[in-house]
Simulated scan of single mutants.
Amino acid sequence: MSNILYLAHEGGWGLNFNIFETNLINLGILVGLLLYFGPKFISKALDERRARIEGEIKEAEGRASDAAASLADAQQKLARAQAEAENIRKAAEETAKAAKDKVLAQGKAEIERLKSGAARDTQTEQDRAIAELRDRVTALALERVEARLQEVLDDSAQSQLIDRSIAQFGN
């Protein structure tokens, strides 16, 4: 007999330790078991594997579509942020230009005000200096006339001048 387990001559079961005989039998049993149970087992294992792979593919596709949606959303947000940044930059440039123009206009107005103030101050100072010179010239002229009159007029000439003035007023 060529089985691993064989019926012993003395009425029992025993083991066959002949490697060559038992390997062929074992191989035959293994092939038989594989042919009988294998298609079901392999089919079931492959179906499970296919189902798992299909699930993973669907899950990956879902994640990919979610990532694509997130990317599109992020790109829209980026575009809006860039547009907002551009609007802010333009507004800042306009504000800076307006502020610059305002400061220049205020500076020009201040310069004109200072010029007119300086011209008024200069004219006032000139008028004051002229008046002061007139007063000084008048005072000097009067002093000279008085000094000259005192030199030229003696007491008798003064009496005659007074009498003549009174006579002219009397007429």
Rank of each mutant, 00 (worst) to 15 (best):
L5H: 06
Y6N: 11
L7R: 14
A8M: 04
H9Q: 12
E10A: 10
G11C: 00
G14T: 01
L15Q: 10
N16S: 12
N16L: 02
F17G: 04
F17A: 09
F20K: 15
F20S: 12
N23H: 04
N23R: 13
N26F: 12
L27T: 14
L27R: 14
G28V: 10
I29W: 12
L35Y: 03
F37D: 13
F37A: 13
G38W: 00
G38K: 05
P39N: 13
P39W: 02
K40L: 02
K40E: 03
F41D: 06
S43D: 11
K44P: 02
A45Y: 04
D47H: 00
D47L: 10
E48M: 09
R49Q: 11
R50K: 14
A51Y: 06
A51L: 00
E54K: 15
G55V: 08
E56C: 09
A60P: 14
A60T: 15
R63D: 11
A64P: 09
A64K: 14
A67K: 15
A67W: 15
A68L: 00
S70C: 01
L71S: 04
D73G: 01
A74T: 08
Q75I: 00
Q76K: 12
L78E: 05
L78C: 06
A79T: 06
Q82H: 02
E84C: 00
E84K: 05
N87C: 05
N87M: 11
I88N: 01
R89Q: 09
K90C: 03
A91T: 02
A92T: 15
A92H: 09
E93L: 10
E94D: 12
E94Q: 00
T95E: 14
A98T: 04
A98P: 04
K100V: 03
K100D: 09
D101Y: 03
D101L: 03
L104C: 09
L104P: 03
G107D: 05
G107E: 10
G107W: 08
E112L: 11
L114A: 12
L114E: 11
G117P: 03
G117R: 10
A119T: 06
A119Y: 02
R120W: 00
T122N: 00
Q123M: 03
E125G: 06
Q126N: 03
I130R: 15
A131K: 08
E132K: 11
E132I: 06
L133I: 13
L133P: 01
R134T: 13
D135R: 09
D135H: 01
R136N: 06
V137N: 15
L140W: 08
L142N: 13
R144C: 05
E146M: 01
Q150C: 11
V152T: 09
L153P: 14
D155I: 05
A157M: 01
Q158R: 08
L161T: 09
L161Q: 08
I166R: 12
I166G: 08
I166D: 11
I166L: 08
N171V: 11
N171L: 05
